[in-house]
Write a protein that binds this DNA or RNA. Sequence first.
DNA 1: ATTAATGTTCAGAA
DNA 2: TTTCTGAACATTAA
Length: 282
Amino acid sequence: MPELPEVETMVRGIRDVMTGRSLRELRPCPCVCRPLTLSPSFDEMARRAKGQTVTAVRRVAKRVVIDLSSRDSFVIEPRMTGLMLIADPPDREHLRLEWCMAGGRRARQTKSVWFWDRRGLGVVRLCDPDELARRLGSDALGKDALLMMESDWHEVCQRTARPIKVALLDQKLVAGIGNLYASEILHEARISPLRPASKVTREQARRLHAATQHVLLDAIEHEGSTLGDGTYRNALNQSGGYQNAHRVYDREAETCLTCERSRVARIVQAQRSTFFCRRCQR
DNA sequence: ATTAATGTTCAGAA
DNA sequence: TTTCTGAACATTAA
C-alpha cells in the first residue's frame, strides 16, 4: 500500500544505515528469481553497484531512491506490498534483495537493508533517477516551492476534466498521492471526489493545497497507515499509526466524524474505492 | 469458489 | 487528443 507517507517512512528508516557507507555486496534472497522485477539483471546490477558509496537516500513520489557515488541510483518501487527493512522481516520467504553495507567507524560491523515483498509486484532498478522523475508531475510534498503554490494546484486541476479524485491518482499531474490519501485529502478539503478537476475553484484549490500538506505531513508523523491486512510496516517491522486518524477511508456507512450527521459513502471510480461524505464535500 | 485489496503500466476502444 | 476499461503482475484473506 505504500503511498507517499509510507515511502517517506521507509526512507527515514534506512537512511542512517546506508548513507556514507559503501556497499559491500548486493545479495539475492532465495526468492529473488521469482516475480520481483529487476533492471538491469541482478548480476549486472550487483557488479555495477559493488563498492560504491551511498551518497543519499531520498524519496521521489512513491519511490525510494538510493544515490551512489558513481551517479547510478537504486530506484525501488514498493508498489502494493514492498517494504524496506533493517530488521526482522514479517517472514523469510518473501525477502527479495539484501544490501550488505560495509561498516562505518567500526569497520568489522556489517549492516544490511532488505527489500521484502509479499506479492512480488515491486520493481528495483539501477538507473539514472532523473529519467524516472521526468515522467512524474510535481511531488505532492515537493520542496520545490514554486511548483507547490496554490495557484499551481489550480493550474494542475485545469489540465483535465476527469473527476478530481481520479486526477489526484494520476502521477503525471501530482506525484505521491494514492488511493487512500486521495480520499482523506478531499474530505479535509471539503471537495467532492466527483467534481471535474477543471471545475475546482481557486478557493477549493487553496484548500486542496493546504489539505494535502496537512494530511501527508500528519501521516508521515504517524509513520503511515497500516490497514487491516497489516502488510505495511516501517523499517523496524512496526505498524504505522495513521489508520487511527482516517476520517473516511475504509469507514463506509460509519458516521462522518466532521458533520456527525451523514454517513460515509463508498463509490467506485477508475475501479478503485472512494470514500467521502456527501454532506461535507461539494 | 469468488472477490477485493494500498500501485503501475499498457493496449485498445469509445 | 482525451478518457475510460480491462488486463497484467502475484498473494492473501474474507
